[in-house]
Design a protein around this nucleic acid. Sequence first.
DNA 1: TCGTAAGTGCGAACACTGTTCTAAAGGCGA
DNA 2: TCGCCTTTAGAACAGTGTTCGCACTTACGA
Lengths: 248, 248
Amino acid sequence: MPTARPEPGMPTPPGRRPRKAAAPRRPLTQEAIVETAIRVLDAEGLEAVTMRRVAQELGTGPASLYAHVSGKDELRELMLDRVAADIMLPVPDPERWQEQLKDLAREIRRVYVSHRDIAMVSMGLIPTGPHLLDVAEAQLALMRAGGVPKKIAAMAVDTLGMFLDADAVEGTIYYAKTPAGEDPHAFFEEYFGQFKEYFAALPADRYPVLTGMVKELTDADDDGRFEFGLDLIVRGIASYVEDGERPG
Amino acid sequence: MPTARPEPGMPTPPGRRPRKAAAPRRPLTQEAIVETAIRVLDAEGLEAVTMRRVAQELGTGPASLYAHVSGKDELRELMLDRVAADIMLPVPDPERWQEQLKDLAREIRRVYVSHRDIAMVSMGLIPTGPHLLDVAEAQLALMRAGGVPKKIAAMAVDTLGMFLDADAVEGTIYYAKTPAGEDPHAFFEEYFGQFKEYFAALPADRYPVLTGMVKELTDADDDGRFEFGLDLIVRGIASYVEDGERPG
DNA sequence: TCGTAAGTGCGAACACTGTTCTAAAGGCGA
DNA sequence: TCGCCTTTAGAACAGTGTTCGCACTTACGA
């Protein structure tokens, strides 16, 4: 089949689409793909980050992405690792390790929440990306500097990670449910109001304790809840520090 | 259009499909749909629970389900609530509330894990189903019996729920990733072995602490990890019990 | 007993998804 | 200039959740 190749300067013959006209033609790279994916994530949430959507944003087709990324799962992991690069890490001060660990947790939360529901990717994922490992290293360094035994620190980094993931997911899931075009805050307010009504209407004979504390349960103070859990965990970790191992 | 209705006893005329031959014709109910969905869940995981799959299992089409269930999300919530019905709840004994709370957490974990990745549904979901509320009621009852203040108990039930969800999800996600037809245990072993190698090969200059505790980090004792986190949380909750409020 | 209204069942179709196949295009060393 | 090989990308495949509209069953008032 002698399909003549178009020579430069020649117009495209009729019936033959001008191959994408004059696209910017920035060569596709993994970095460009991940950046674009994060832009879509920030704008429309994780659900909107589809291969097609990212490709379209780059002015190409979905198949082109597969040369730089093995699939959607890898893309999501790469996105998470890139986001993790924004987490500011502390220099360990053994005297203040507990407060530093809490601050780091707050910083992780801040970064996660600032990228919509990216935390969903982190759930149940063993960190392998360089920046994710930097974060784990920082957590472990703080605990070890504080005298937390290796075995405890190993489990604690896991527990803390689970807590951070679950918190971030919980915090963004209703935000993510907001119908496109609606104001997320107003939607959330309305949505949550329905739950308050529902709980208030629950039969008191079946749920005597619960109905007796509807106010406490529905007064959702996200930050307070986070600080409560964080304090639980850090205090628990600290309780495993053997006095002999304590620095100073 | 005079389409003659088939009279009983008459054979179906040629060219007219015998409407589903002689299906069991159990009338479709929400209960039957949820039961079937859980059967698929147990056999093939949450991902396999699609509207089409459930409908097929019931010998019908996907459209038929929408008369009894508003959509996939509602079906998943109904599945979770039905699973929650299997959780055995304790009768509060104020003297042993901490151990009872731990036992209840273990029981929830047992039931969740026995239904593959059902815990994913629970993530970030405000419980509304009757059985899910029974479980919340039981947790709150235990804490209140132990003298935990209302405000603390309200936050604690949330933290504990997050922990249970995250743990169950973490525990089943690799199981869920097992390619169909392969032995999950062998796959998991192989999969995890790769991580051990990866961590061992990490550059020690960038990750000095982490590389110094690869053994502790990769010796994944799921039960140990769970018990560690559970102990952290329950001890933390107990620390908020004011002596004056303690029973006895 | 009949006629009709309401509601269920469900095949087909719509607009999506991740991924793969295949062929074209581009850059690069020889 | 030629040939090769990676990158690009259109089209297609096998799925998905959900909606539409029509056939059918059932219930009920006349």
